[in-house]
């Protein structure tokens, strides 16, 4: 108990919590854009995994983590393009498409890792080390926690702000939401529903891919099979918990991140606690919060329904 209190009061816990929240936050942000446009993207997990793999591949090939970011995002966007082609253009079932993509990407990334690196011995690559924001990081108390993070954390925060603004304050955001609420009416007003949903899906892929890159390059600097570890599905839950509001994503993702950080810290500091049960904690907590906060949620009215133009 004493040990737990020590962990809960240490700034390092919250610093790690922010770091671990970022991949889920980015993926949830992408999912939110897609869902506001009417597309439920169950392939999120696969897109994150593609990003995690691409990040390591790019950083390995070009010796530069930023080119890893680009590679990861591009791979995830390719996956998103397949999702859009099948589920938006061909009006195939969105959920089945996403499930199929998850399975295929799990296989494809594992396959490519074994093809690029013999026997799947993925090397350590250049990643993102923490970068202290000059001045701010020496603030007492929160300085280290909030302003001593890797560069991608600040990028994620900026992207969150930008997308909040785009979704709620721009013409494009309004049109996208129209496609998610009533695509037929949107179409009759001259909004190109299929094109809007394509854009939303590709943005979703890019953000999920960036989140995936952060899993591999923000922390352990290497790739392992299925390393997205269900975070795509946690992000799906977080979008619902946050009731499709970009600003609500932040506390929801942070809760998950801190919980995961707690599990990892407790594993190191208190050897008497079984670490396996601690590692189950983030999933149990997500379930509990999802069940507890679901209440009255209002998803976009046309969510999950393909649009076929007549």
């Amino acid at each position: 108990m004493h040990a737990l209190l020590d962990i809960l009061t240490s700034g390092a816990l919250y610093a790690a919590g922010i770091r671990l929240a970022v991949p889920v936050f980015l993926a949830a942000l992408g999912e939110l854009v897609a869902e506001r446009g009417g597309l439920v993207n169950v392939g999120l997990e696969g897109m994150m995994l593609a990003g995690a793999f691409g990040g390591v591949l790019g950083s390995y090939l070009f010796d530069d983590p930023w080119l890893g970011v680009i590679t990861g995002v591009v791979l995830a966007v390719v996956v998103a393009a397949i999702q859009a082609g099948v589920a938006v253009s061909l009006a195939g079932d969105q959920i089945v498409t996403g499930i199929a993509l998850n399975i295929a990407v799990l296989g494809a990334t594992s396959f490519m890792a074994r093809t690029v690196w013999t026997d799947g011995n993925v090397p350590q690559v250049e990643g993102f080390d923490p970068w202290a924001v000059p001045g701010l990081s020496s603030l007492p108390g929160i300085g280290d926690v909030v302003f001593g993070q890797g560069a991608l954390v600040y990028l994620a925060a900026a992207l969150g702000a930008v997308l909040w603004w785009v979704l709620t304050r721009t013409d494009w955001g309004l049109r996208l939401r129209a496609c998610g609420e009533d695509p037929r009416a949107a179409d009759s007003l001259g909004i190109r529903v299929i094109a809007m949903r394509w854009q939303a899906t590709l943005i979703c892929g890019a953000l999920a891919g960036l989140g995936g890159v952060f899993i591999s390059l923000g922390d352990i600097f290497t790739f392992s099979d299925g390393m997205s570890g269900g975070r795509g599905f946690i992000a799906l839950a977080i979008v619902i918990i946050a009731r499709w509001s970009p600003s609500h994503l932040v506390p929801a993702a942070l809760l998950f991140g801190v919980c995961e950080a707690l599990a990892l810290r407790a594993q190191v500091t208190s050897a008497d606690l079984p670490y396996e049960l601690l590692l189950a904690l983030p999933y149990v907590l997500t379930l509990a919060v999802y069940a507890g906060l679901v209440g009255r949620t209002l998803p976009p009215a046309a969510l999950g329904r393909p649009y076929v133009r007549r």
Binding site: I82, V86, S89, L90, A91, G92, D93, V96, T97, I99, A100, L101, N102, I103, A104, V105, L106, G107, A108, S110, F111, R114, T115, D225, V308
Partner: peptide, 25 residues
């Protein structure tokens, strides 16, 4: 033969099946 080929075949089979059955297609 890498084990993951099976997953690639499974995933793409479902995708092709959706395409083959899509009304739009």
């Amino acid at each position: 033969v890498p084990e993951s080929v099976g997953q690639i075949v499974q995933g793409t089979a479902v995708l092709f099946l959706i395409v083959a059955n899509a009304d739009v297609a």
